[in-house]
Design a protein around this nucleic acid. Structure first.
Length: 421
RNA sequence: GCGGGUGUAGCGUAGCGGUUAACGCGUCUGGUUGUGGCCCAGAAGACCGUGGGUUCAAAUCCCACCACUCGCCCCA
């Protein structure tokens, strides 16, 4: 019989790695709260329709079936969330958040699912930290989510961080730009790699982040979207840049930065860091003023970002950043079976009731003290409480420090108060 | 879906045609009667990813498949 393995693309987070998760999550939560964001938890399953309409069914991840779908009942399909933004907007509309004080600033942390081949830091189940500001068109809101993202990586100790910034326009100006880009590229059609020729037909914007050789030169003279923005989008972009400049926050205008889904408008940004295989981006975000309407709600602007926690952790590990270890009990209660075991069990639970972390030495039969001492050593125990037959008979317990200090006996009923200090 | 890499005990590796597959770490037990870390001794633990083939003989050569992994596609 074959042993059952972990499902493809899934990860076990072992105790030794948990401290990385705690560090990232603690830092993210602290920061989000400091910026005035409130936590929301959204369902992992949503009606498939949400993503089809929110993200657009033409998106590759539907065409290629890169989502996990389950049939809820005849004709009703649910999808394991592949992203968070659509769910945020759905929740905003459904819970009437439009009548909360505006804007509504929310964050969440949880798993998302993508049915694709895994590579470094990209798993089929991954966890994401997302922050969104809903109901606000002020470019300062864009600034706020950008800085929150940047500060997260800074606080975690990342180096070599940069903002990549671009605007993707809006339904008014974006099509004009796409046409201009198409026209430009069509002249170079024979020079394009087959995959880029394909992109030119299906999704011309994607050519901009093509990794084919020679594209850097070819695209250098391509039209930039910045020059095609409508007044509204241009004002928005310039104001955001002005705010960044006022803060002396550097950024790189990256005209090749694009988003794969339709709901993005105006601001798109990424934070780049060194390392992590082929991927430089440690987070991606942007504005999505068209999303609410596409899922049947009233026009509602929004801006936010998402960041994969596994990938953040990979970066931390590559940079050699050591999170604090998770504390273990400092007390081990040792015994020799029989009555001493009974007393040991009682003492252990008394300690815990008093708020003192304690580990009970398990032993079906009488177990050598050496073995129990070794156990203590492996778990970085500071003090072993030894319940020997003689001590128990006299109502005593041996307090045995592991740091080299002398051991001594004290009355059993004084242990808790002694250790509380 | 496409391409590269890798598959030997829990982990990291050696062995690359020839008797009972080796080493380090880890685990467990012991080193006299109730005391850790170091040291020493011992034990458990691998049908050498799976299936076929070549050969007197295969972990070692060949083929297929599978898994893992990195990258492409895509990136929500």
């Amino acid at each position: 019989m074959t042993t059952i393995q972990r499902a493809k693309g899934m990860q076990d987070v072992l105790p030794a790695d948990r401290r990385y998760w705690d560090l990232v999550i603690d830092t993210a939560v602290t920061l989000a709260q400091r910026y005035g964001f409130q936590r929301i938890d959204l369902p992992i399953l949503e009606y498939t329709e949400l993503y089809h309409r929110g993200v657009g069914d033409a998106s590759d991840f539907f065409v290629k079936k890169e989502t996990y779908e389950v049939e809820e009942s005849e004709g009703v399909s649910l999808t394991l969330r592949p992203e968070f933004t659509a769910g945020f907007m759905r929740a905003y509309i459904q819970n009437g958040m439009a009548s909360w004080p505006q804007p509504v600033k929310l964050y969440t942390i949880g798993p998302a699912f993508r049915r694709e081949r895994q590579q470094a830091g990209r798993y089929r189940q991954h966890s994401q930290f997302n922050c969104e500001i809903l109901g606000e068109i002020d470019p300062a809101a864009d600034l706020e989510v950008m800085l929150l993202a940047m500060n997260l990586y800074r606080e975690l100790g990342y180096k070599g961080l940069t903002f990549q910034l671009n605007s993707t326009g809006c339904p008014t100006c974006k099509p004009v730009y796409v046409d201009a880009l198409k026209t430009y590229l069509t002249d170079y059609l024979p020079n394009l790699a087959p995959i880029d020729q394909e992109r030119l037909r299906r999704n011309p914007l994607r050519i901009l982040d093509s990794k084919e050789p020679g594209m850097d030169e070819l695209l250098a003279n391509a039209p930039h979207i910045i020059d095609y923005l409508c007044d509204d989008c241009e004002d928005h972009f310039n104001e955001l840049r002005g705010l960044l400049d006022d803060l002396d926050q550097s950024y790189t205008i990256n005209f090749r930065l694009v988003r794969g889904i339709d709901y993005y408008t105006k601001t798109v940004f990424e934070v780049w860091a060194e390392g992590i295989g082929a991927q430089a981006a440690v987070c991606g975000g942007g504005r999505y003023d068209g999303l609410a309407e596409s899922i049947g709600g009233p026009a509602t602007p929004g801006v936010g970002f998402g960041s994969g926690i596994e990938r953040i952790i990979l970066g931390l590990q590559e940079a050699g950043i050591e999170p604090p270890t998770i504390p273990e009990p400092e007390i081990l209660v040792a015994h020799f079976g029989g009555v001493t075991k009974t007393v040991a069990v009682q003492l252990t639970f008394r300690l815990r009731s008093a708020g003192i972390g304690a580990r009970l030495a398990f032993a079906r039969e009488r177990r050598s003290l050496k073995s129990q001492m070794r156990e203590a050593n492996k778990h970085n125990i500071k003090t072993v409480l030894i319940l020997g037959e003689e001590e128990v008979a006299q109502g005593l317990v041996v307090v045995r420090p592991l740091d080299g200090d002398e051991q001594h006996s004290i009355p059993l009923d004084e242990v808790v108060s002694l250790l509380k200090k």
